[in-house]
Amino acid sequence: MNIFTHLKENEIRSLCNHINMPTEATDETIRVMNTYDFSNLQPYFDCLFDVKKGDIAVKEMNEILKDEADKGFILLATSLSAALYTQEQYHEKGISDDIFYDTMGCFSRFVKEHKVSYGVYGFDRFFWSYRQLAQSLFRIGTLEFELAVFPLEDIVVNGKTLLKKNEPYLSIHIPSDARIDKANNHDSYHRANAFFAKYYPEFHYNMFYCNSWIISPNLKKVLPETSNIIQFLSDFSIIKVDEDEEGYKTWVFKNSNLTPEQFPEDTSLQRNIKQHVLNGGKIGGARGVIDKNLF
């Protein structure tokens, strides 16, 4: 695939418009498209469409661009060009543009999250986003679902094997703009089952799986039962808890380097977690599963 085929202003602007990219970020992307020679990235472009080779593209392109001030927007332009190839593949499979734009909305979301964290628009999630380009990860409703194979040892709870080593499963990811109330969560699970049965019938999975701070049972100590987070985690059978995992800092406080004393208190979630941690409590992270047949 040729990196330049879709690297055209009208196509990139149209895509950015469909995925609600901030105008300033779109303009920056177009600027680097008109000033940077992308030909040195061509040898690794095809890797973006293969989830098993995506990390090669990440490593090699990052090395090529390590001294470029516009590195983030160069990688964003490359990714958006690749996304338009992915759209063609969606069309061949009959997958709707609604799913495509929802899935590729990750790029706008990442750019906006960069602004929240650093005060300027930017793109620093190239290490992750090849999953969307390679049709390994899809946004279906409020949640994202990634095709995966379980790499760990069998999960056995109360004598029952829930997930076997090398067994296919759907990994759940929670976008920062997800509305995770019970109705939206269950709608996503239902729709995901229908989607993968229709478009990936060869992918035989039994479990949804999540590894995140957002399903840590410790959150029940700081949030009411009616909270959306508690509604989300209550669907999971928790199989492991890591008390010392601190991923919540990035997602709740937008900065993993803050001490508890520095945590902002702009939301009730931030205030509750801050008070809990200052009092010696932990949030941690957890792994959990949901039987797909429940939906």
Rank of each mutant, 00 (worst) to 15 (best):
M1H: 08
T5L: 02
T5I: 01
H6E: 02
L7F: 03
I12M: 10
S14Q: 12
L15Y: 11
C16L: 03
N17R: 13
H18Q: 15
H18V: 00
I19Y: 04
I19E: 02
P22S: 08
E24R: 08
T26P: 07
D27P: 00
I30W: 10
M33P: 03
D37L: 01
N40D: 11
Y44M: 11
Y44C: 06
L48T: 07
D50M: 03
K53D: 09
D55V: 09
D55N: 12
V58W: 15
E60R: 14
N62L: 10
N62G: 14
E63H: 13
K66T: 08
D67E: 13
D70A: 14
F73Y: 15
F73A: 08
L76W: 08
A77K: 07
T78Q: 01
S79V: 01
Q87I: 02
E88T: 13
Q89P: 00
H91Q: 13
E92D: 11
S96R: 04
S96M: 07
D98T: 13
I99K: 03
Y101E: 03
D102C: 02
M104E: 12
G105K: 12
G105L: 14
G105C: 11
F107C: 05
F107K: 02
S108T: 13
R109C: 01
G119I: 11
G119F: 09
F123E: 11
R125M: 10
Y130I: 05
R131K: 14
Q132K: 04
Q132E: 14
A134C: 06
Q135M: 15
Q135A: 10
L137K: 12
L137T: 15
F138V: 01
R139H: 08
L143Q: 09
L143H: 10
E144C: 14
P151T: 08
E153G: 10
I155T: 05
N158I: 02
G159D: 08
G159W: 14
T161A: 14
K164R: 15
Y169L: 13
L170C: 09
S171A: 11
H173W: 10
D177P: 01
A178I: 06
R179T: 13
R179G: 00
H190D: 12
F195P: 09
F195D: 06
K198L: 08
Y200T: 09
P201Y: 04
E202Q: 13
H204E: 12
Y205F: 15
M207H: 07
M207Q: 15
Y209I: 06
C210N: 12
C210W: 00
N211E: 10
I215F: 05
I215K: 04
L219Q: 05
P224F: 09
E225D: 14
I230A: 10
D235A: 06
D235R: 02
S237D: 10
I238Y: 03
I238A: 00
I238H: 04
I239R: 01
K240S: 13
K240A: 10
V241E: 08
D242P: 01
E246H: 03
E246M: 11
G247N: 04
T250Y: 11
W251M: 07
K254A: 14
N255R: 07
L258D: 07
T259G: 11
P260E: 07
E261W: 02
P264Y: 06
D266V: 01
T267E: 05
Q270E: 14
R271H: 00
R271T: 12
H276D: 03
V277E: 05
N279L: 04
G281A: 02
I283W: 02
G285D: 03
R287W: 02
G288A: 04
G288M: 03
V289L: 15
D291R: 06
F295A: 09
